[in-house]
Design a protein around this nucleic acid. Structure first.
Length: 469
RNA sequence: GUCCCCAUCGUCUAGCCCGGCCUAGGACACCUCCCUUUCACGGAGGAGACAGGGGUUCGAAUCCCCUUGGGGACGCCA
């Protein structure tokens, strides 16, 4: 059997972190099989809340995450005719009926149900009532004539067997009064028509699966396999939704996270493969299976994501990192970048990348390479350049001016010799240099920096510090 | 309220289905030390959990029940 999955977001906002994980799992599961398919369906039947911006944000988010879908995205709205046809068929077969209840009546039923401790809201008023009694001028909705007795069972690939009494489920609306299909109908018809074999979605849809099962039965169609994955919770333990401040994936991109880090993090949040933590996408595709998805909700932990991001930054290609930070530096310091910026960043990247956990941090830490002289000095750095520091710097400058070899190692040897001659530790000499060269007290190795900057720029920056305010 | 689901270190989890190998393993975070020109990286240690109570069993983190706690769903939204 060919595996066919789908990601079916509603375009009412950005692609948030929970949706991203759902998409990832669907994608991974489909890609795990040689001929598996992963489709994208935009659930835009709610015309009032759906926007093209949101659709674009979903495309962008998925693309950035590296989750490619097969074929063209499907618009659920555009399939309304098929949805309607299914409802009409059910109506013709006597498996659905018209209901003329007003919103007020429905509200009263809901209140009564609550008060009596029932979950089932609609009381079936029009289920067997003669349509001849229909009030004039009222457009009816179409409801499914769902079974009143017995139970509905789903064998969920993650949750196991879950059973609910049919008495708990009321007759769901299939077609609204204006003739448009509801989500419940649209999902079932679309999943069937698209040949979806595995519905992998958040477990907030678990109860929908029962109603959808009733629909599949009524329509005489085979059900797909269901896999309801636990929701991602915020640090407070409650569902992480757009309404509760969950961020879109682009926010993580802007904050300097790498897509592979987010992918790895999201993968491990609720799924495991023994003790493995760092998992490449290739391995993930090979290993991923629904049987290893946990049943309990997980809390989103930004610190762990950050750690993972640091790992992937260290592993990332230097050219890619330079491109990423040049873009940021360009906007942070318009027109102020040195013409050697790119070359220096590339040369100094090895020392830079292991000191940053996010691209934004990397970019900030790298700015001293990219900017022209004179560089800004932090307060702490200025303190390194007191009378003692300045004196050492001046002495070292003359040594540096005549240094034979301008390389990382040679420079360090020179500085060490200079320090020891004066009975000092290397650090005493290195710190003022660091301040002069980077404007900071924290940076990669100062000798590496001198090497990257070159003699002229190094001496120039030292002079700036010596003659500065 | 009703229905459904969940429950191992602070967090993510392994182990659970097929009881003994568990004096419960890993990762992040935290603490100590080492490396070291700063900060990181890296390395070595440390502290840290089977929610509670009943069963079943020679033996339970693992099976059963109850309690408690948490979550989700109850729309002519998706």
């Amino acid at each position: 059997m060919t595996v066919v999955t789908r990601f079916a977001p509603s375009p009412t906002g950005y692609l948030h972190i929970g949706g991203a994980r759902t998409a990832l799992y669907n994608w991974l599961f489909a890609r795990h099989f040689p001929d598996g398919k992963f489709y994208l369906r935009i659930e835009d039947t709610d015309r009032k809340r759906s926007t093209q911006d949101a659709v674009d944000a979903i495309f962008d988010g998925l693309t950035w995450l590296g989750l490619d879908w097969d074929g063209d995205p499907i618009s659920q709205f555009e399939r309304a005719d098929q949805h309607r046809a299914a409802a009409e068929r059910l109506l013709a077969e006597g498996k659905a009926y018209k209901c003329y209840c007003s919103p007020e009546e429905l509200a009263a039923m809901r209140d009564a149900a609550r008060k009596e401790g029932r979950q089932r809201m609609y009381d079936g008023t029009w289920r067997d009532r003669d349509p001849a009694e229909a009030p004039a001028g009222v457009d009816p909705v179409i409801r499914l004539k769902a079974p009143l007795e017995g139970e509905t069972v789903i064998d969920d690939l993650v949750q196991g067997q879950v059973t609910v009494a049919n008495a708990q489920l009321d007759d769901m609306v299939l077609l609204r009064a204006d003739g448009t299909p509801t989500y419940m109908l649209a999902v079932v018809v679309d999943d069937h028509d698209m040949g979806i074999t595995h519905v992998i979605r958040g477990d907030d849809h678990l109860t929908n699966a029962f109603r959808q099962t009733q629909l599949y039965l009524a329509l005489g169609w085979d059900r797909p396999q269901f896999a309801h994955i636990p929701l991602i919770h915020g640090p407070d333990g409650a569902k992480m939704s757009k309404r509760h401040g969950a961020l879109g994936v682009e926010a993580y991109r802007d904050d300097g996270f790498l897509p592979e880090a987010l992918r790895n993090y999201l993968l491990r949040l609720g799924w495991s493969h023994g003790d493995d933590e760092i998992i490449s996408t290739e391995q993930a595709i090979e290993w991923f299976g629904l049987e290893n998805v946990g049943k309990s909700a997980a809390r989103f932990d930004l610190v762990k994501l950050t750690n993972l991001n640091g790992h992937y930054i260290r592993e990332a290609d230097n050219h890619r990192l330079v491109d990423l930070i040049m873009a940021r530096l360009d906007t942070a310091y318009p027109g102020k970048l040195a013409k050697e910026a790119r070359d220096r960043l590339f040369k100094g990247m090895a020392g830079l990348k292991e000191r940053a956990k996010t691209i934004s941090e990397l970019s900030e830490n790298a700015s001293f390479y990219a900017l022209d002289r004179p560089i800004q000095m932090t307060e702490k750095a200025s303190q390194q350049l007191g009378s003692e520091g300045t004196g050492l710097l001046r002495e070292l400058r003359s040594v540096l001016e005549t240094a034979d070899t301008w390389s990382d190692e040679a420079l360090m040897a020179t500085a060490r010799e200079f320090a020891e001659t004066g009975g000092r530790k290397l650090g005493a000499v290195a710190q003022p240099v660091r301040a002069a060269l980077t404007g900071s007290t924290v940076s990669p190795s100062v000798f590496e920096i001198m090497d990257v900057l070159g003699r002229e720029e190094t001496l120039g920056r030292i002079d700036d510090a010596l003659t500065g305010p």
